[in-house]
Design a protein around this nucleic acid. Structure first.
Lengths: 238, 238
DNA sequence: GACTACTACGTACGCTGTACTTAGTGAAGG
DNA sequence: CCTTCACTAAGTACAGCGTACGTAGTAGTC
């Protein structure tokens, strides 16, 4: 019977193996890896239960023995790529540097697996690799003299801000990719629309910004670091 | 023919009425209102093209004359609720207070329409009401002496952070709602799982946090304001 | 009045998540 | 050792999705 209703809702609270009956043919790691492979190759929309089952080589419904619901598959996927954090070296003692190190890795992971940002919000954040990451973070913040709750807030805000930032980056990058014509053409249409709206006079301050020639916003990496530095400073103003 | 491929990808760049042919029977506002009504009542998953079409009283495929793709419906929905921002009074002159005012409204809107956070990331942010909001924000930031690009960054970070915060709030609230048993039971299972993981000794610093008795995190409103204050301070440290 | 862009609508296709059923397997308890 | 039964594996089926496409009718433009 698939998806028993007296099971915990969180997949991590389910033991992977109960010890009774035949040995499961696949591991959670196998399944996660397969799903990640599909998402990397063909995008998140290509990740269906059927497709993942086919990828690991079992029947569609057999997959439900391992993954009771689709969202649990998301859990596995996010945990799997969270394993890409390199936390082998212990924190340096400079918590700002350590948090920056962590944030840069988070951004790198999200760039390597763009689909992560789409499913991250539906994930519980208590998967093994999430806890591993949190623990390293707490170690890094040992020297920071703030209440424990604030450390969790810091962790959450850094993660959230990185996600928001990358989501914006992706949105900008995506703008044209799906256009039937070239990206430039679509960008031009957007620009023309915006210019038209501004020209109506309904948005005077936005018009002023445009007239002033809004900054070319420079390097994305620089903007990212600036954002991050601001955020960290806000927790311990010097 | 529905969904012509030589049309702009952004619905806002499409005129609502071209002047040729029969007068459209419905307006974008009608459609947006209908979709919002459904989402408010039965959740985002209930918002399908069929259901929206039925709600406004037309055939399913007729809706595609107004809304070429599903994501465009999202645009209409987000713009519609963005109309709930009260920007009737001009900015006060105190940009921190004004941004706080804006952020509180954003949070209120997302609490009134929980589904917004799920679709907000797939939206372009150049809808009429988004521009109206941005313009008010720019007016509020007139007194802040930073480059124009930084003002846009501030707007983006505030919006993004509010979204992240509310998404977390919702995730916590949702944790138990979908459980077959009571929310407490599920919470207990989660807690037991976490305790078990911590007890393995794999997460020493997390264990220390638990042992120390992690702060009960107090009022969510207070946490929100603290987060916001930090963010604003990070743009203009006093 | 002819033309033509537009609205309106129904049918149909391929896909989704997953409830339910049946059969077989192998470790645990007596 | 043998019975028991929780477990794995798989297939079938269903309700619903987004939307491509074709057809018919309508109302502004030349």
């Amino acid at each position: 019977m698939a998806g028993r209703s007296d099971e915990p809702q969180v997949i991590w609270a389910r033991p992977e193996r109960t010890g009774r009956g035949p040995r499961p043919a696949y591991s959670r790691a196998d399944i996660a890896a397969a799903a990640v492979r599909i998402a990397d190759a063909d995008g998140m929309d290509a990740v269906s239960m059927r497709r993942v089952a086919a990828e690991i080589g079992c029947g569609t419904m057999s997959l439900y023995n391992y993954v009771p619901r689709k969202v649990d598959l998301y859990e596995l996927m996010v945990d799997h790529v969270s394993g890409e954090y390199d936390l082998s070296r212990p924190p340096s003692g400079d918590w700002r540097a350590d948090m920056t190190y962590l944030a840069h890795q988070a951004r790198a992971i999200m760039r390597r697996h763009p689909w992560v940002v789409r499913i991250m919000s539906s994930v519980h954040g208590i998967s093994p690799n999430a806890l591993r990451c949190l623990d390293w973070c707490l170690a890094a913040l040992e020297g920071l003299d703030v209440p424990p709750g604030t450390k969790l807030e810091l962790f959450g805000m850094v993660n959230g801000s990185v996600m928001t930032f990358v989501a914006n980056e992706q949105a900008v990058a995506e703008r044209g990719r799906s256009a039937p014509w070239s990206a430039e053409r679509e960008q031009a249409v957007r620009g023309a629309y915006l210019a038209g709206q501004v020209a109506t006079g309904a948005y005077p301050h936005l018009a002023a910004l445009f007239a002033e020639g809004v900054a070319p916003e420079g390097d994305a990496d620089a903007t990212f670091d600036r954002m991050l530095r601001r955020l960290l400073d806000s927790f311990a103003p010097k």
